[in-house]
Computed example of a mutant assay.
Amino acid sequence: MTMINRRDAIALAGAAMLPALQARAQSNWPTKPIRFLVPFAPGGTSEIVARSVAAELTKQLGHNVFVENKPGGAGVIAMQETAKAAPDGHTIILGHVGTLAVNPYMLSNQPYDVNRDFVPVTLLAKVPNVFVIHPDVPAKNFREFVAYAKQNPGKLNYGSAGNASAGHLAMEYLKLVTGMYMTHIPYRGTGPQLTDLLAGRTQASSAGMPALGAHIRSGALRAIAVGTQSRISALPDVPTVAEMGYKNFETSQWYGILAPAGTPADIVKKLQEESYKALRSSAVTERFATDNAVGGGGPAAEFSTFIKSEQTIWSDIVKRASIKPD
């Protein structure tokens, strides 16, 4: 009887100490380098946002936050790997409109549930979508481009960073409201699709200023419209789609951090707070200002609400535009 009581006492003491030990372990986070997965190939806005923030987080946390590009499957490959990772704050992923708000309605067999298997941490940035064409396209502005595309259905090809990428969604939304018909050519990232666009092998695209800015300024690409409700400072002479007669048209790229479900709340909070600090650093604010990106950094609950609102919007667009994986 004494042995049983002693064992019980030891077990009870251990159980009583466990929360304190767990809290101590969590408060010491991070204890090793952090993997920051990006579900697209290098060269696009997603990577630029991720690397800008990761560089500052590395300085702040004292452990390397390394960005790992893992393209493929409309983001499913990277999302699945993150969902299966240990929920200890050392594996995170860059979520965006495609993986979080479109794939659940476009793909019928995702091996995870975006609302159940991930925990939102914080919104990092919103980046205006810019619509561009190759200079060989015989159109000098948005109205001429729409008219030309309608007169030549199926003649134009547009590239994107892949199925359910922000560029794919923006162009499909534009096709829906204008009645244009163009063929979608998906690539494994913005970098690869820009290679073919610059060479004239595709004729149009939509992406963010971080990826397109230098090519627009050099004249290699022609900007014909932006997806925001107001014109952007980087392209003051380029009209919005809405002011071209398509009222309420609005589309932008957005990016945020997610962690595997089950990640302790205090780690999520610390990561959100450190991300907020990183987004206010001079290096990030200057880069974002150049690219007309709007920084986030708000609490996890705010990002969760934002994701749900985007899911409502894009589930309807996916259905109306019959967006399907190519």
Rank of each mutant, 00 (worst) to 15 (best):
L100Q: 09
P87N: 07
D117N: 15
V65E: 02
P138K: 11
V49W: 01
N152S: 04
A147R: 10
N157V: 13
N157R: 13
A147L: 07
H134Q: 07
S165Y: 02
A83H: 01
A83Q: 02
N157F: 07
A85I: 08
E56M: 08
N141G: 09
G89I: 11
E56T: 00
D117R: 15
A85S: 12
N163Y: 02
H63L: 02
V127R: 01
L169G: 07
N129V: 05
V121Q: 08
Q80R: 13
I133W: 01
V137K: 03
H90K: 10
G75H: 02
E56F: 01
Q151E: 15
E68A: 08
Q80L: 09
Q151V: 01
I92S: 09
A125K: 06
Q80S: 14
H168T: 01
T91C: 08
Y158R: 03
P128G: 11
K84N: 12
F142W: 12
P111Q: 07
L100V: 06
Q60Y: 03
T58R: 13
V127K: 06
F131Y: 14
K70R: 14
K59F: 02
A149P: 04
A86R: 10
V132E: 04
V132S: 03
G62D: 11
T45E: 11
E81N: 10
T45D: 14
L94E: 13
F131N: 08
T82S: 11
G73T: 12
L107N: 00
P138A: 05
V53E: 05
G154L: 09
L123I: 03
R51E: 15
P104Q: 03
S165R: 00
V127T: 14
N157K: 12
I77Y: 05
F118A: 08
V114M: 15
V132Y: 06
N157T: 09
S108N: 14
L61F: 06
K59S: 11
T91P: 04
Q60G: 08
M79C: 12
T58S: 15
R143Y: 01
D136I: 00
F118E: 13
E56L: 02
N115W: 02
P138E: 07
Q151A: 15
P87W: 11
P71I: 04
T99E: 05
N157Q: 11
S160V: 10
H90L: 12
I48A: 03
A161R: 00
F142P: 03
A50N: 06
P104I: 02
M79V: 11
N69L: 07
Y112W: 05
A164E: 03
R51K: 10
V97Q: 07
Q60P: 01
H90N: 10
G98V: 00
H168K: 04
K84W: 03
A149K: 08
F142H: 03
G162F: 00
A54C: 08
V127G: 02
G43M: 10
G95M: 05
N103H: 01
